[in-house]
Nucleic acid binder design. Sequence first.
DNA 1: TCCAGTTATATTGTATCCAAAATCAGTATC
DNA 2: GATACTGATTTTGGATACAATATAACTGGA
Lengths: 255, 255
Amino acid sequence: MNAQSNNSSNNIASLPTSAPPSSKGSVQSWIYDQIFAAILEQRLAPDTKLAEDTLGEIFGVSRTVIRAVLQRLSHDDVVEIRPNRGAVVASLTVDEVRDVFEARRVIENGAIDLACKRRKKSDVANLKALVESEQEAFEGNDRGAWIRLSGEFHLALAGIAGNKALEDTLRALVSRTSLAISQYETPGQSACSQQDHFAIIDAIDAGDMKSAQQEMTRHLAECEAKLDLDEQEKGTDLRTIFSNIRTGNDKSETL
Amino acid sequence: MNAQSNNSSNNIASLPTSAPPSSKGSVQSWIYDQIFAAILEQRLAPDTKLAEDTLGEIFGVSRTVIRAVLQRLSHDDVVEIRPNRGAVVASLTVDEVRDVFEARRVIENGAIDLACKRRKKSDVANLKALVESEQEAFEGNDRGAWIRLSGEFHLALAGIAGNKALEDTLRALVSRTSLAISQYETPGQSACSQQDHFAIIDAIDAGDMKSAQQEMTRHLAECEAKLDLDEQEKGTDLRTIFSNIRTGNDKSETL
DNA sequence: TCCAGTTATATTGTATCCAAAATCAGTATC
DNA sequence: GATACTGATTTTGGATACAATATAACTGGA
């Protein structure tokens, strides 16, 4: 029905991909980055249990620091902490996925508005370079890098808007989008096309705000459409299955 | 120059205003609410040190749970945790305040768009009741309740939009706004007028989306204008003071 | 008097320990 | 065969103890 969390220990055991503790930055941040990346790059599936002890052994630290990391991850909504029952990789309901895309439409169109007004020459060039890297990763089948770079394009766009608050807000939504993709993507379809990204850049470069917003709206709608949201809904939600049953206490209300 | 954190122990000592541990909800959440409210209602000024030991004694728990609470608060951006140097009540720079208002303009206008499409009869009534409570608190000089209710109006509006992601995002910005007000407000001016709120409600009630958005934009701009952002900027930022000095490495770039 | 360097104190970061809760295994019962 | 109960095991929540770091207090010299 939904993603299974079998052989979970194997999944978790393959976590520390890159360098050891690393010189700069705290160990805690390093562990945070490792787990975050593992989730976004879909090496850890939704609903996978993240046991404190196991993670502590893997990273060579005590549960104390793992607890702190898991708490940070839960703030970013990529991990869910259930009181007394531990942490799991977050899984989104269909409605939550729809909300995330809708919220992104609002925020990213706002960001485009600002970006068109504040863009500098170098911004557009940087943006193009980013999407080219993205394309390389895609063609080289480096799925992890591709997902990451795809998100970074949207964040870079918000960066040009020059509003940290908006950018931070979008960062949370972008990572939730990655989660949604890993949970609902249809096997063949690639979720996010570089052509769309180039089209948005061109419109911004030309200073055509309206057109850029239309492209963005279309792009997000397309990404959402590529997900298998209807199927899952039927399978997961009992209410939907029995939606033909009426019980009298129907509190729907319309203006 | 900016708010002093003298007699800090007195400030902190006056924290636990309401009931003991409370039956429902964990102790941690209760402590979180206490500190959050104290900050939003401006009983704790920006830059006030939040020592783990002190807070632990006040609330009768160990540093472990205080640390968790401070971490949550720092994620909400109302507390800043400086590695190895402890936590303080967050203080916003002038630029951050401007960003927050700009981000709110984007998000709340998006929320109005959705709210106009999805509103139910009861929604408008609830909204009105909320602003009436707000007005009572204002007239009764209950500053704490007034600030809280003022924020709740904006959140209730986002609630009508029916998008949790957008609402959560706005919640973070509303609390940062309260921080900004406590830091930059001009003594006489009340920051947020109930008349504006009623005007927005009326426009939504009439289904006039454009007008509601204009009212919201104007309302936010007015709140921002009531803050003393220019003065502080001069006093705080050395770069601004010496902005007439030119050093050669001027990396400003324009399209 | 002011500043630099040193020592002492206080505070944060992390590990470990104990208690409480949930999960799991096995047994009995229908 | 399925469900409900009981006890053992595992896992989380929280307090304490120790190590690392930052802050302060102090001393000596210019």
